[in-house]
Structure formats: C-alpha cells, structure tokens
Design a binder for these strands. Structure first.
Length: 544
RNA sequence: GGCCCUGUCGUCUAGAGGCCUAGGACACGGCCCUUUCAAGGCCGCGACACGGGUUCGAAUCCCGUCAGGGUCACCA
C-alpha cells in the first residue's frame, strides 16, 4: 500500500460505548496499526438533542480502558465545525446541487403513508415549486431543510468485505437532507466532509450503514472528494432472539418487566410514575412507545420500584462488562473474533498479535451472535495467565467503577492476596463478592437465610453445634495462621468423625454470611482470631 | 412489503473442487479431583438449511426454494 492508511472511529456521544461500536473501533484501530498508519477519533455530535458531554467522557474512558488509543491529540467535534459545513452547503445551494425543502414533518409522514398504502417505496425527489412560492417561503423565513439534489443514476461500489455490486440503481436514489432545520448538518453530510478533510482512506463501520454509502458517494462526487475504501462489518446479534444487539435492549427489557409489574400488581402507570417521581406522561409514553427511551438514572428509578437488579440486565455496553469485572484484554480478543478470524485454529491473541494478523480479507460476511459464555471463558483464561501485578492493576480499575465495594479500602498487597486466594476465578466481580466479608465490620455481615437454614440449622442445628464445639478450640490457639487453624479443625473432625465439609461450611457461613468464600483456613487467618470468634459468637446468640 | 446481505455442530468459526470418516473453541453430558464457588484432568455428544444441476468427484461452482438479518428519518 503506497499511501498511509488512515482510519477513524466516529461515535456519536449519546451514551456509553456499546460492544458493536467497540468492535468497529477495534477493527479500525487494528487496520491502521497493521499498516503503520493512523487511527483517528472524531465525535459526531450533530444531534443536539441526544448528544451530551458526559457521554463524550464515558466514550473516551471506555476506549482508553480497552487500550484503543487514538492518534489525534485534538478531538474533532462536528458541532464546532458548522462554519465549514455551511460554507460548503451554501456553495452547493448556489450551484443548484442542493435546494431548500419546506415540507413539515407531518407532510412527509403523510406522503410516506400514502406511498405505503399504494405499496410503493417512498422516494423523495425535488418538488416543483413555482418561483412565486419560493419567493413567498423565502420572505416569510419559513423553516426548511436543505436537501442534496442527488444526480439520478446507478450507484454501485465495491465493498472490501461484501464485494462488488453493492449499492442501488437509479430508481432508488433520493434527495436526502444534508442540513436540518436547526441548522446542523446531517450525519451524511458531516461524515463525508470530515472524512475527506482528515484524509481517511478506509471506512470500517457496521453493515447497517451499507446503503448510506450511496448518499456518501453521491456527495463525494459532487464535492470532488476521493472515495475511501468501504468495509461494512457484519452485525452483532442478540444470542436469544437473533435481533440486532443494541443499547435499546436494556430499555426493552426494563419496559417489558415494568409492564409485567403493572399487570401482576394490578396497578397503573400513574402509580409507577408516582413511585419513581417521574412525570406521568413520560412513563406513559415510554411504556407504549418502543422508540422512547429512559436515560440511565430514570431507568434506575424504575428498576428499583419494580425490583429489577443491574445484574439482571444484559451487558451490552462496554461499561457493563467493565463493571462486571472483565479484563480489557479478554474483551478485545473476544471482540476481534466477532466477525473476523486469522484463519486456522488460532483464537488466543494479544493485541500485538492481533495487529500483526489483522486484514480486511479476514473479516467475515455473516452476522454473529454475541456469545457471553465464550467471553467469560476467555476472561477466565486471561485471568489465570496474567501476571499478579497486572491483575492488581486491573482489579483497581474494576474498583474504580465499583466504588461501593468494601474492597475499595484494601491495599495493593491485600488485593493481590485476594486474587491469589481466588485463583481460578472467572470475573473480578467474583473475587470482589466472595471476599467482601473480609473487609467488612463484624456487624455489617448479613446472614443469608437459606444458608443459615441449610448449613447451620438443618439436622437439629448440626452446624451450630459444630460452631459451639469449635469456638473454644479456636479461642485457645496461640498461633493464628492457616496451618494451625487447619490442624486444629482436622483434629476436631477426626475426633467427631466429621468430614471437612461438615465443619468448613458452618464456619464459612458464620464468618461470611453465605456459602461462598475463598479457601476457609486462609480466610480465617486473614480475618484474624478476634473477628472470627466475634462472628461465631454472633451465630451462637439466640437471635439468629 | 420493496431493495440489499447472509446461511457449516446450540454458539463463534476453520474450510477457497479431491487433504473432510468436516477441524478448533465455547457451551452441554459423563467420570475424576475437591472444605464452598471456581479452576483443573480425562472421555463423550454434536453441523455442511433444502431441492435441483455442473463435475470422475462438491461443504466448496451455478440455479431455485426456504430461513435469518439489515435498510427504507430533519438518528447516527
């Protein structure tokens, strides 16, 4: 390749980065790195209503977490480039290659409805307005959009993934909007200008953009821009129903559950609105209109009312996976394999290897379902093979997005110890959740009722009896470490003819409140004698 | 519905006319290990969507059918 490869990732800041976007970013990153080119980041914030500054930070943060570093020091924000766009649009207007269109939303919807009824596709072409009408509209400053007068002809192009012959024939081209009535350019216009400005050579994006490409090509031809190489990536699908995996899936699930909740509680949207302190009209609209979405805080409010936990929601956003305790390397490796593979049996690859092996030819054409089990397996493997020091860093990054965890108080040494004790863990969250009790005060421990029942009270309080026997034995231990504890407990087990399971489980419940923990003797050593005894005493008080 | 894309184990895929009795990974099942959850070891189950061609020979090429997906915005 003679010229330098320049790729870009151009998300719109409407929320956290989702896995589809991350995959697109990764492929763009890998292609650029493979050829020693540049990988650029641009923020497409032309949708004023939906773009937020918080989302920009969230996006950058997730990208950095993944290690997808971009090369431009200055971020490009489309919202700051209005002058540039307007100059070009005005020129297009002057040259008659674009025109103002005055239809209202309602009029367009009506026209589309008519077309649909007549079973033909709605194609927007320039309406024939008389000069008088035009002058009148102009003088009354009527709201308008600017549309591109797309030259009517066939638009076919070769896609680097899908092959030649992509596009549409002349009967299907229409005049699309390039400047919205609020004065902002549309995506179609801004991408074309910005990609040309940045000298983008390869555009990698989701297959949902395939047909948009004809608009972009038409614009490039009118503007005298070169056409980049297009590579449309297969879509990432939901494993359950095979529909496109999207950010809306969480909203969808919450809506479904909310509707069920209304039904089972025989209550009204008004009630839900009152309990969540959201506007009745908003709740009503949201419940019946799947296009409407709640933002994250609003979702949380609804979830707490209807009793839905965050962990019940499907992970879709990179941030969800991050919070759940996945390692970025595992995530990247898994994402890379979603629609691409190096050929052969190769699966485990470091980022360096991915860069070396990545080619557009290796990108597949069929859509892929997002298989969380496989991601989990990848994560488990990475966790097992990563150095202790690196794992501590990853754990700290995990805690940074899970600040409520008691482990947030732990020192690096303690974190390393937790990681070591839980060797073989799948997610950092597993380490966190199963070790929390070690960092809580004795009175913060909550006892899980089913664990208490099954392990302590069953068979005529067998578990409690063990604790009562063990308490003085442990109390007299002069040296408190896992070895001394183990031999004391083994001696007790031998005397009473009890297997370790019958002894370890009651102790586990006593100190942790549940049935899952790191290895028990090391846990007790870490906890210390005083706290261990205090927790056993709590169990032996009649109140429990 | 129109237009477009895709179709190999449950899932991600290897496979570019004979290397295929179709390989790998995850999942799943069984056994082993085990103080919990995991991890680990061994064994196993399991696919070329269907129907026609072309060819000495087809998972691989062609046609049709079916199925899935994408897209039809003043969202990107």
């Amino acid at each position: 390749m003679a010229n330098k490869v320049i790729t870009r990732f151009a998300p719109s800041p409407t929320g956290y980065l989702h896995v589809g976007g991350a995959r697109t970013a990764l492929f763009s990153f890998l292609l650029a790195r493979h050829f020693g080119g540049e990988f650029l980041l641009r923020i497409e914030d032309t949708d004023l209503a939906r773009s937020t500054e918080t989302a920009v930070h969230q996006l950058l943060d997730d990208l950095r977490w993944l290690g997808l570093n971009w090369d431009n020091t200055e971020l490009v924000f489309q919202s700051k480039r209005l002058e540039i766009y307007n100059k070009i649009i005005d020129d297009l207007l002057k040259r008659g290659l674009a025109y103002k269109a005055y239809e209202t939303d309602e009029e367009l919807t009506a026209q589309r409805a008519v077309a649909e009824k007549a079973k033909r596709t709605y194609i927007y072409r320039r309406p024939q307005l008389t000069d008088d009408q035009l002058r009148a509209y102009e003088s009354e400053n009527r709201p308008h959009v600017v549309r591109f007068a797309t030259p009517v002809k066939d638009y076919y192009f070769e896609d680097a993934v899908l092959g030649p012959g992509q596009g549409v024939n002349s009967t299907q081209v229409q005049d699309f909007v390039i400047r919205k009535s609020d004065g902002m350019p549309t995506y179609h216009f801004a991408v074309v200008v910005d990609d040309a400005d940045a000298g983008i050579t390869h555009v990698l994006r989701g297959q949902e953009h395939l047909l948009n490409t004809v608009n972009h090509i038409a614009l490039q031809e009118a503007l005298g821009y070169p056409r980049p190489i297009y590579a449309h990536l297969p879509v990432i699908l939901n494993p359950q129903d095979g529909s496109k995996m999207s950010k809306r899936d969480r909203d969808k699930l919450i809506r479904q559950r909310a509707q069920n909740w209304l039904k089972t509680n025989k209550t009204s949207p008004q009630d839900l609105a009152a309990k969540t302190s959201l506007a009745v009209s908003q709740i009503e609209d949201w419940l019946k209109d799947t296009q409407k979405q709640l933002d994250i805080p609003e979702q949380q409010q609804v979830m707490s009312v209807i009793g839905l936990k965050n962990t019940d929601l499907p992970e879709i956003l990179v941030h969800d996976f991050r919070k759940a305790g996945y390692l970025p390397e595992a995530m990247l490796n898994f994402l890379a394999l979603l629609g691409w593979n190096p050929g052969g049996d190769r699966e485990r690859m470091t980022t360096e290897q991915l860069i070396e092996l990545f080619t557009i030819e290796g990108i597949g054409r069929s859509n892929a379902k997002f298989n969380r089990e496989k991601l989990l397996a990848f994560n488990t493997e990475y966790a097992a093979s990563t150095s202790a020091a690196h794992l501590v860093q990853a754990f700290k990054a995990y805690l940074a997005v899970n600040p409520e965890s008691p482990l947030a108080r732990a020192s690096d040494e303690q974190l390393a110890k937790m990681l070591e004790m839980k060797k073989g863990f799948r997610l950092l969250r597993d380490v966190d959740e199963s070790s929390r009790f070690l960092f809580m005060r004795d009175d913060e421990i909550t006892y899980q009722p089913d664990a208490v029942e099954k392990v302590l009270k069953k068979s005529d309080n067998q578990g409690l009896t063990v604790l009562r026997d063990l308490r003085p034995i442990l109390a007299t231990l002069s040296t408190w470490n896992h070895a001394t504890i183990e031999s004391a407990i083994n001696a007790y087990g031998a005397e009473k003819q009890l297997g370790l399971g019958k002894i370890a489980q009651p102790v586990r419940v006593a100190v942790s409140g549940g049935t899952i923990s790191p290895p028990i003797f090391e846990s007790l050593e870490f906890l210390g004698k005083e706290n261990t005894l205090a927790r056993i005493d709590r169990c032996l008080t009649p109140a429990l």
